[in-house]
Design a protein around this nucleic acid. Structure first.
Length: 273
DNA sequence: CGGGCCACCTGGCGGC
DNA sequence: TGCCGCCAGGTGGCCC
């Protein structure tokens, strides 16, 4: 479920409850998610103080005061929930903190993952070494994107979802960004003009920033009433709207749903050329 | 190495 | 009510 804005909002919620606290108890309910849990994870975490929470791509990074970082990826269905009961079927990891909060990592599909890494070694971790630039950083510029895609034969939608190019842009924000930029998702990446690349770069940043702002403003302290951190209602421009007219559209058949690289793409053939 | 495709899982939904 | 097929927002790995 989560793309960059959701993960960013989850991080801000976690920061509120976790930073400065110690793990007083850690309960692990199975041996693996997408990859095995690190050996003796509960023992390694218990007693450690959390000194900060960050995000890189769609990874949550929890820095501990022994120069270790706890890495959490939410996959498709992962959630972090403040839940003293932690009796849900897919509560895989239960953290008890020194402020008596109970934080649960719940993930029905188990596409998420958890790992531990020396903080200084994070850039070389196998999950991070190949990652492209952060879309909200100044490194993600039109010139950078042009350089990355000028010889790419794949379609532009697949290209902007490629985490080696730019991180954090998932299926929903790829669809919406291309719609707002007026660029067809089917266009070969290397055929985009420089003005189009400039427009797309700017719109990706804008779309992600707006979504993060929406998360911040729609949640009190980033917590839902059910205790889940960071998720919020959002309006998409085209995502999931097959058959509906996009805003002010003149086309006959409305928003189309097609498949690209095995994923659903939603777009308006009239507005996106 | 680039690109295409698959696998990893469970749950929710619509249709019959 | 129940069963079935289809769909889901991510990503690493494999094969050509």
């Amino acid at each position: 479920m989560p793309e960059l804005p959701e993960v960013e909002t989850v991080c801000r919620g976690l920061d509120r409850v976790m930073t400065g606290q110690r793990f007083t108890h850690v309960q692990q309910n199975r041996k693996n998610l997408r990859i095995p849990f690190p050996p003796r994870l509960p023992q390694k975490l218990t007693g450690q103080r959390i000194i900060g929470i960050h995000r890189r791509a769609k990874y949550i990074l929890i820095d501990l005061d022994n120069d270790t970082t706890l890495i959490i990826h939410l996959g498709m269905s992962g959630r972090m929930v403040i839940d003293p009961d932690h009796t849900n079927k897919h509560d895989h990891l239960v953290f008890t903190l020194s402020n008596n909060n109970t934080i649960v990592f719940n993930d029905p599909r188990r596409f998420g993952l958890v790992d531990l890494c020396a903080t200084a070694d994070l850039p070389h971790h196998r999950l991070f070494a190949h990652l492209g630039v952060e879309p909200l950083s100044r490194h993600f510029s039109a010139r950078y994107l042009a350089d990355k895609i000028h010889n790419k034969k794949t379609d532009i939608k697949t290209a902007i979802m490629d985490q080696r190019v730019v991180v954090g842009v998932g299926n929903i924000y790829a669809c919406d960004s291309l719609y707002l930029a007026g660029i067809s998702p089917l266009r070969p990446a290397h055929k985009l003009t420089m003005p189009e690349i400039t427009r797309l770069t700017r719109i990706i940043k804008q779309v992600l920033r707006k979504a993060i702002a929406a998360g911040g403003s729609s949640l009190r302290d980033y917590v839902q009433t059910d205790g889940s951190l960071g998720y919020f209602q959002h309006q998409w421009a085209v995502y999931g709207k097959a058959g509906q007219k996009c805003k002010g559209c003149t086309c006959a058949d409305g928003i189309q749903r097609i498949t690209q690289g095995g994923r659903s793409t939603f777009y308006c053939p009239d507005r996106q050329v």
